[in-house]
Write a protein that binds this DNA or RNA. Structure first.
Length: 796
DNA sequence: AACCTTGGTGTTTTT
DNA sequence: CACCAAGGTT
């Protein structure tokens, strides 16, 4: 392979340095991916076995791209390089060895939804008020602990305040619950791998010898446990190359430790440091704008990015009255460019700070008939029907996973309600067995009655699938999923319980899941050409649990792409629009009021990332008011816009100076440091901007919001209140409704009092149906038919 | 047991 | 606004 003429001197230096610790500080657009791929290709050229190379990327998409580009360069062998994300790398390692830590290798990976349910259950069990101690907050503390490798004991020993003590308690029970369910959260994947390495030096040695050459991309976004993982692996051969840009560190909120990159030279004193400062991506106006913004940060490695791409057009800034007008402008602008053949739709990206901002844009795009793709937001794998089917598959794969069993036990409806489930749950706990095990032998659970057989039928169905998988009876994953849906009657269930249109949409989603499974089979066959079998169910579930939104984006289709600034990292587009450039939105109000200046610096880095995504053309927009959380809110123009020198800006706004004084008085008045929110709402500004006449009905879209999504009710069975009148004098308290029917002590002609309808006379008692229905003529409410199981009646 | 309505609440970004 | 949990109704 020839390197001459393909790389600049710094890039060349990085590529040729294959041994020892190496830090590549790669500015935005400086040809980072090119350096990485050439470096790997060069290593293989030199005779290093691809089998000994580990490359960690941030997303699966980046991994795939890296592999295919190395493949293009070397022509063969690239498929034996281990290229994967931190999380999937650890998941793969743990699938082999986690039994060392007492877990079973068929563990389930819990997503944020799942972990929130676990914590909510723990709070309930301990009668802790979720209002005072929100699960989300507790979880974020637990996550921080895990990222920082702080064990339950360590955290508990330092816990002083109430919140910390509660969190310590929940942390302990949470970890136990995950263990009992044989489940891991995202952070566990990293943490337990490090623990595994500590516990078993042989296993560590094994991987050290395999991964003699390690490369980590996006190093600025690694956290402490990831650092530890890498360090353990790299310590023997010390061939560690890390690539990153401290100015693009945007994941502090999830534990990324910028010191990892800033202190790399301290940790590896013999490290070679290469700086890539020539930008090949953007025009000078765009690059200089980015440089000007990021220069306002203090905590950074000094560097100056330069470009030879020519000045290009200025950066555009447009200010609108409403978010709707802003969206309309962006869509019209793209439409005009596309019509003039300046670019294709897929050359355009619209970026925003928060996912909810996509809604307004989506409405306009639909209205204008512009094809688009939204990255993330309402996650495909978060949809109810997908979670249901996956919960079945996870139950088939891992019988200890109580959470997923609870999700599906009555979906589709099997007549197993909260009361019976509560009994089974209690039995499982008392006997220290899993819920699934209990269901399998539900006849041993006292007082379940007929529900026991329903439970056993359910458990038996699952067992049949397990057995058939073990016997290799399924051709492939799509066949397995197809038969599962058939067996449980999921399609009928959807159509019986929902509007036809909604049910159809959900089935379309399930078809999509089956398509993904088929695609996974295909990819597996390509990646493992010598494999004698297809992928296992676990491997599929692994993959599904660890996809990032961005991984699924189809870049071939000619569509406008919409995504958050975070999702855009690592990507580039000819035409970039960043919407919602408002102080309060971007930077977010939290970072504005925060006492920690790092919060604002991280927002600024995010702005830097956004700006540097643009190659030719960058447009920034803002709205004077927009609907946020149901009320109209106004924010001033973002400081990041004002940090761009005016000579680089083509602006509709009159800047007098680049200070806060250039904002109108009304907007300035919003800047009260002691207020939680930096904006003001419709109560303060009496303006309700236009709406409606060209509104697109979003409710027609699939997975509309209201009424469709029903969570599983995990509420603890509460003590049953004594009925006003014991309808069944033979039994004390309430039992199953059907038992009451025969013994009802009312008869036609009786005068009764109803708790809500007042007094009345019984006209008729009908017990031909599944319950007893009492027809009563009320004095004030007229004739009513009440169900004897629930009606609270007093004989008078 | 299942459904529907109400009310209270929270808010970035994501593997 | 939009989501969820709790409570009431059939």
């Amino acid at each position: 392979m020839r390197l001459e003429g393909k790389l600049n001197p710094e890039q060349m230096e990085a590529v040729l340095q294959t041994e020892g610790p190496l830090l590549i500080l790669a500015g935005a657009g400086s040809g980072k991916t090119r350096v990485i791929t050439y470096r790997i290709a060069h290593m293989i050229d030199k005779g290093i076995s691809p089998f000994n190379i580990l490359a960690i990327t941030f997303t699966n998409k980046a991994a795939e791209e890296m592999r295919s580009r190395v493949d293009d360069l070397v022509g063969f062998g690239a498929d034996s390089i281990w290229v994967a994300t931190f999380h999937s790398t650890c998941a793969r390692i743990l699938r082999r060895h986690i039994d060392v830590l007492g877990y079973d290798t068929n563990f389930t990976i819990y997503d944020t939804d799942d972990t929130k349910k676990v914590v909510t259950n723990i709070l309930k069990k301990n009668s802790i008020d979720p209002k005072k101690f929100p699960p989300k907050t507790i979880l974020s503390v637990i996550s921080t602990c895990k990222n920082e490798m702080v064990s339950v004991e360590e955290y508990a020993s330092t816990a002083m305040e109430d919140f910390e003590k509660i969190t310590a308690l929940v942390y302990r029970e949470y970890q136990k619950a995950l263990f009992d369910n044989n489940a891991l959260d995202f952070d566990d994947l990293l943490l337990l791998t490090v623990e595994l390495f500590k516990k078993s030096p042989e296993i560590l040695e094994n991987y050290r010898n395999r991964f003699r050459y390690i490369l980590v991309d996006e190093y600025q976004d690694t956290n402490t446990v990831q650092f530890s993982f890498i360090k353990m692996l790299a310590d023997k051969y010390r061939n560690l190359c890390v690539v990153g840009d401290d100015d693009q560190s945007i994941y502090r909120f999830r534990g990324a430790n910028i010191r990892n990159i800033l202190d790399f030279e301290k940790n590896y004193s013999d490290a070679l440091v290469v700086k890539l400062e020539q930008n090949y991506r953007s025009t000078e106006n765009i690059l200089n704008s980015a440089n000007a913004v990021i220069a306002h940060n203090n905590n950074r490695k000094e560097k100056t990015l330069w470009s030879q791409n020519g000045a290009g057009t200025k950066v555009h800034f447009r200010h609108f009255d409403t978010a709707r007008e802003e969206a309309q402008f962006v869509v019209d602008d793209i439409y005009t460019k596309v019509r003039r053949r300046d670019c294709m739709k897929k050359d355009c990206a619209i970026l925003y700070r928060t996912n909810q901002q996509s809604r307004e844009l989506e409405e306009v795009l639909l209205q204008e008939n512009m094809p688009y793709n939204i990255v993330g937001g309402t996650n495909f794998y978060g949809r109810r029907e997908i979670k249901d089917i996956l919960a079945y598959l996870k139950t088939i794969a891992n019988g200890s996973d109580n959470l997923n069993v609870e999700r599906i036990i009555n979906v589709p409806k099997r007549g197993i309600g909260e009361t019976s489930l509560g009994k089974a749950r209690a039995y499982a706990e008392n006997n220290e067995i899993s819920l699934f095990e209990t269901l399998l032998h539900a006849d041993r659970v006292p007082t379940l009655g007929k529900t026991a057989s329903k439970m056993m039928d359910f458990a038996a169905d699952i067992c049949v699938f397990r057995h058939r998988i073990a016997e290799n009876e399924f051709e492939d994953l799509p066949e397995l999923i197809g038969e599962l849906i058939e067996k449980i009657g999921y399609e009928d269930y959807l159509f019986e319980n929902e509007e036809e249109e909604d049910a159809r949409d959900r089935m379309a989603n399930i078809d999509e899941l089956i398509t993904k499974a088929a695609y996974f089979e295909e990819k597996y066959a390509t990646d493992n050409p010598d494999a004698e079998r297809g992928p296992t169910l676990q491997e599929f579930l692994n993959d599904v649990s660890l996809v990032a939104d961005i991984d699924d984006v189809n870049t071939d289709a000619d569509r406008i792409l919409l995504m958050t600034l975070h999702a855009a990292k690592g990507l580039e587009y000819n035409h970039v629009y960043i919407v919602g450039m408002e102080d309060g939105l971007f930077p977010g109000d939290r970072s504005i009021v925060s006492a920690d200046y790092e919060d604002m610096e991280e927002e600024r880095r995010l702005a830097y990332v956004g700006i540097t995504r643009a190659k030719e053309d960058l447009t920034l927009t803002a709205a004077r008011s927009r609907m946020i959380r149901g009320s109209w809110t106004s924010y001033p123009v973002s400081r990041f816009v004002r940090e761009i020198p005016s000579e680089l800006l083509d602006s509709s706004m009159k800047f007098t100076t680049n200070t806060i004084d250039s904002i109108s008085t009304v907007e300035q008045s919003a800047f009260k440091p002691n207020r939680l929110y930096a904006g003001y709402t419709s109560k303060m500004v009496n303006k309700k901007p236009e709406s409606s006449d060209n509104n697109v009905d979003l409710s027609k879209k699939p997975y509309g919001t209201t009424g469709l999504l029903k969570g599983v009710n995990y509420s603890k069975p509460k003590a049953v209140a004594k009925p006003v009148v014991n309808l069944n004098p033979g039994l004390s308290g309430l039992t199953k409704g059907s038992d009451l029917v025969a013994n009802t002590s009312f008869k036609p002609g009786d005068r009764v009092n109803h708790v809500k309808f007042g007094d009345g006379v019984i006209k008729e008692i009908d017990n031909s149906g599944k319950s007893t229905y009492i027809t009563i003529e009320f004095e004030e409410y007229g004739q009513r038919i009440l169900d004897s199981r629930f009606a609270k009646l007093n004989l008078i």
